[in-house]
Amino acid sequence: MAIITISRGSFSMGKSVAEKVAEKLNYGIISREVLLDASNHYNIPEIKLEKAIHDAPGILERYSHKKQEYISYIRSALVDKVVNDNIIYHGLAGHLLLKGISHVLKVRITANMESRISYVMKRDGISAHDAHALILENDNQRRKWTHSLYGQDPWDSSLYDLTIRIDKLSIDDAVNFICQTAKTDGFTTTEKSLQKIKDMALACHVKAALVHDFPDIGVTSEYGNVLIYLKPKDHVTSKLSKRLDEIRHRKGTIYNLEVHAGIPIPEDAV
């Protein structure tokens, strides 16, 4: 079976699609729960996490690394939630946070501007002009967020396996396509892909434990062998060594933990 991420432009009926897919496949469904888990586990107010994953970083935030820190917590909570499979995540940035796992079906739902405007007008009781402005502002925030943190455009369809426009195709049509695709061989959970997501979960835990003090590190894991990558000019300080010892003791699933400095951080590092 599979993990399905459903990304959408604001007010594009992605939530309805996600709920119907979950019902049809009998999958679990999550969205905000990830923020709640991260909030509880890392003791950060949920509002701050929500802001981190929704709003583009301001100029000062780009230097403070706070946003990256919060996103590391959210990512860790998300991977923990989906690691056991058969689940749909329709919150923000799932396609980026779970990148590289072959049994993750990444779906993007779009809708034409007219129907988005009409939805917002009805929901908020505002004029077409105001609804249009609100949608553009939301879209713009998503664009800036994705671009500033991942250097990518959320509207780039090559980030997704399937992009469906709800217009001539209905919500039910979209649900059918997604369910049909999720059952194909390409998205079947294999031993290898399952191991990969378990490794990702471990790497995310390690990163989340270190990110507050060491925001620039990258972490990978392969079968429990964890590699920590430092930026070229950084060195293994006594503070880092101490923290790594703590992590080794706390995480029984780590077989080996190594630190690499001076080599580029791999693309699949979290």
Partner: peptide, 11 residues
């Protein structure tokens, strides 16, 4: 488009 299909993982 009504549909965009990425053939990286979809046969």
């Amino acid at each position: 488009y009504d549909l965009v299909i990425n053939l990286d993982q979809i046969d």
